[in-house]
Design a protein around this nucleic acid. Sequence first.
DNA 1: CAGATTTGTTCAGCGGGCTGAGGATTCGCA
DNA 2: TGCGAATCCTCAGCCCGCTGAACAAATCTG
Lengths: 136, 136
Amino acid sequence: MADIDSWPTGRLLSVAARLVEGRFYEFLASHGLTHAGLITLHHLAEGPLAQRRLAVLCRVTDQTMSRTIERLRRAGYVDKQVDGQDRRRVLVTITPAGSQVLALAYEAERESEHLMGAVDDYEQFRQQLVKLIKTV
Amino acid sequence: MADIDSWPTGRLLSVAARLVEGRFYEFLASHGLTHAGLITLHHLAEGPLAQRRLAVLCRVTDQTMSRTIERLRRAGYVDKQVDGQDRRRVLVTITPAGSQVLALAYEAERESEHLMGAVDDYEQFRQQLVKLIKTV
DNA sequence: CAGATTTGTTCAGCGGGCTGAGGATTCGCA
DNA sequence: TGCGAATCCTCAGCCCGCTGAACAAATCTG
């Protein structure tokens, strides 16, 4: 269907995202992990963070982050504890198991990137995406 | 956060898609429509289709399409009827109300495209997305 | 200091992807 | 003819976005 050429850009982005992420499904499922959880672990690698801060970094609402963290906690990949300084806050920390699965994921991700040979100028393509996200 | 530059491509696509589609939220909500429903109506504009065929065109599973169509039906934008030739099939037809809201959406979509001035070479960017989708 | 406001998180509920499983109908071949 | 295989759709259940609303803790203000 050549019809796809006339799709609005938002639709193109959405479908492309699903297809690319689908490539990763097997790895994630085999480690009891999800895509959202992986991003969260990535941001926690540098050190503990409050949930709200995590939500901002992941470009997600507080509510969505709350659920994602709860799942990671049940999987044993993060710990939660109330902040002593500000007891409204919950500090989230990555566990050794979390660091371990994160390292594995980095490797798998790098491999799957090579499947994107379809794009002519890969780096420029990425930069356009980054620019788009930053300006919106 | 310059950190975003190092995100895997799948993540970039996903976030960009959400941001761009979010631009459209107000219009859709005001017409009791959703993004998935809009795509479905688009494919129905040419004539009735079986659900499975619709799912393929929209790059979605049968189950997802089933739900989307049911919602469109409740909103009065499509009709469903069993195919006389093959009673396993359900033929979906767009209603006059559906055609009308589709025309409105086309206009709104075209306007929102102009918000994408962030991308340097817009047409090339789109073509790369199309190519990526077609090869996966 | 008490009350109002702000801040951080969670609960409820919905749409939209997905997988897995199951029912109804049709098709194909012995 | 008849039974198994393929086809089309739906139901159940999960994760991931979102909005709206509620709650506890901290902070601001009169």
